[in-house]
Simulated assay, not measured.
Amino acid sequence: MDTPLTHLGEMPIEEFLKNYWQQKPLLIRNAFPDFVSPLSGEELAGMALEEAVESRLVLEHGNEGPWELRQGPFTEEDFLGLPRSHWTLLVQAVDQWVSEIADLKRLFRFLPEWRLDDVMISYAADQGSVGPHFDYYDVFLLQAEGKRLWHQGPKADDSSPRIEGTRLNILKEFEAENSWLLEPGDMLYLPPQYSHWGVADGPCTTISVGFRAPSARHILEDLAAELAMHLPDHLRYTDAGLSPADNPDEIDPASVRRLQDQLRTWLDQPEQIAEWLGAVMTEAKYPETVALDAGDASDWREQLAQGGTLVLNPASRCAFSEKPEILYVDGEALPTNSGFARQFCGTRTISTEDLETYPDIAAPKGLVDTLVDQGTLIYPPEDF
């Protein structure tokens, strides 16, 4: 299941990227013919009992008022006390725990994998939903079990009125522009900011493949600090060639344009920007999960010599760049051969053959030791 999709339904990927990606919603009927969900609602509820798994319950008519949000982990008694309808269970990052879901995510490699965030799965009782809302990221909503009625509305933003008295960002005003009933194998793509509202038509399960995108505020705050470290102190605001000032107290448009031009020059640091982008986009969503496996494969040389392999921790993320030659893993920029970095990001494994081809990575306190020590490289999980 590692081969990326070439079509979305009958639509070639090239057409989707040109006309729909980040532009407008698309309903894909029978995107996955004869789809069988890898996870049942009962199994999803079982995951929500675990401390390490992030889970939430949304009750439209809760004890504390409308659209009540409850945070996991939950107990069996919590589920036994739920009403018959109008509630939803959401479990984040299921791809980190279930191999079939991780395989499903790999089908979306027609997009940069470092843009992929995680796979959330929701189980809803009849009429369950999380209310009309919008997201700041792209999402593919794959119907896994049962039926869900999706309403899609106009774009919304921070200024859109919200319902008060709930921790959820429920839109106060919502008017559907399109409505579709999705059945297993159907999929809905939504670009950022399009308002939507999914309501279960009987019990159902929906798989959400989301994509991460840092905000402009985060990029400017974090990247500016990173780039500033590489600028020499002698670089200053300059204004050679001034004309006589009409008013010496005025900050005139020419001065503002001059600073803008100088900023463009100071920002022209492609290698530093690549390092920052690689580190930010590979930050683990749950670093504590990665840390749990730190050092567990410390005898990896012996294991690989016996024909074993090391694999990327399911909670880890990786990417690479060729200029500069860097492997980005879990927010770290690690210089290494770009041929190895490309291969590792594609396979997510390291074997004896890799050590023979790229011996530098096996040096004491080298790349492999570093990744094992931080929990990024582990032995293949038995149930993954």
Rank of each mutant, 00 (worst) to 15 (best):
M1S: 14
P4E: 11
G9V: 08
I13K: 02
V36K: 13
S37A: 15
P38L: 07
L39V: 15
G41A: 07
E42T: 13
E43M: 11
E43R: 12
L44I: 09
M47H: 13
V53L: 02
R56V: 08
R56E: 10
V58Q: 05
V58P: 03
P66T: 06
W67D: 08
G81I: 02
V98L: 14
L111E: 11
P112D: 12
P112W: 10
L116E: 11
D117Q: 09
D117S: 09
V130H: 03
H133K: 08
F134K: 00
Y137G: 09
L141H: 04
R148S: 06
I163G: 00
L168H: 06
L168Y: 02
E175V: 09
E175Q: 12
W180Y: 15
G185T: 08
W197R: 04
S208F: 01
R217Q: 15
H230W: 09
L235T: 06
Y237E: 11
G241V: 10
A245M: 13
I251F: 14
A254V: 13
S255Y: 10
S255V: 00
Q260A: 14
L267F: 15
D268G: 01
I273P: 01
I273R: 09
W276V: 10
W276P: 07
W276D: 11
T282R: 00
D293E: 14
A294N: 02
A294W: 01
A297M: 03
L304F: 06
A305V: 00
Q306A: 15
G308H: 01
L312R: 05
A315R: 03
A315Y: 01
V329A: 15
V329Q: 00
A341G: 11
R342I: 00
G346N: 14
L355C: 15
L355T: 10
L367I: 11
D369P: 01
P380L: 14
